[in-house]
Amino acid sequence: MKKLKFILFLVIALPLFPVFGQNPKCRVENLKMEIDQDNLLLTYDLTGIRTEEPVEVHLFFRDRDYRFFRPRNLTPDPGSRVSPGMNNTITWNVAEDIRFFPADITPVLITGDPYEYKFGCGPAASLASLAIPGLGQYMVTDTRDHIIKPYMVTIMAYGLIFLGYDAYQDRYRDDPYLTNEGGIWKMGDWNYKYFTNDAEYLVSLGLAVWLADIIYVAVKGQQNKLLHKGMIRTLPAR
C-alpha cells in the first residue's frame, strides 16, 4: 500500500516538475522561414512566461550533422533585445554571408546569453527515466508541445506492469480432473483474469513503454549535447 501511495504521489507530482530543458523566461514558438530574393525572413513568436522584459535573441543555423554557423548580416543585429510578442521577424541577407551552402540548414533561435544557454540535460538523463518512466523527458525536452505527456508515460508503464501483476495474482487453475481415456488425472485449465497470458503481455508492454522512454531520453539527451557543443564552437572565447 505504501508503494502504491508513493507511485500515486509521483504521478501527481510529475506534471508540477519545472521544465529543466528550456529557458524558463521566454520561449520561441512557430519559427518559420521564407525566402524573398536573396533574403531569408524568419518569423517567430516570443512568449514571455514570467516577464514582459525584452530578451536577447541569437540566431544560429545548423546542418543535420550538428555543425553550427552564425550568420552576421542580420536585421535586427545579432543579440538584439526583443520584447515578447507575436510575429517577430529577423531578416538574413544570405547573399552577403554565403552565396550557397553545401548542406541543408535549419535555424536555431535562442533567447538569453548563448554562453549560458542550456538545450537540456545530456544522455545521462536517461538514468532518471530508468528510475521513473517519463521523468527524463522533463530534463531533455520542452514537454509543453508533447501530445503524449511524460506523466502519461509514467501512468502507462506503471499501470500496465501493475495490471500484469494483478492479473498474475488472480490467475488460478481449475481442479484436476479424470480423463475418460485410461482414467488419467489431468491438471485443470488456467483461468486468466483478462485474456490468455494476460500477465505476461501486460508486463511486457509496460516494460516496453519504459524501455522506449529510456531510449528516447538518451537520444534526445545526445542531441542536446551535440547542439550545445556545436553552438559553443561558433562563439568567440571569453
Binding site: R99, I105, T106, P107
Partner: peptide, 29 residues
C-alpha cells in the same frame, strides 16, 4: 545563384533555394 538557366539535352535547370520539413523543423537548402 548568378545563373538564370542551364539547358542541355532535353533538360532545363535552374538553381534555387528550397525549403522542406523534417518533423516540425524547417530545413533550407
Amino acid at each position: 545563384h548568378k545563373l538564370n538557366l542551364v539547358q542541355f539535352g532535353q533538360h532545363h535547370f535552374i538553381y534555387s533555394f528550397f525549403i522542406y520539413f523534417i518533423g516540425n523543423q524547417q530545413y533550407l537548402g
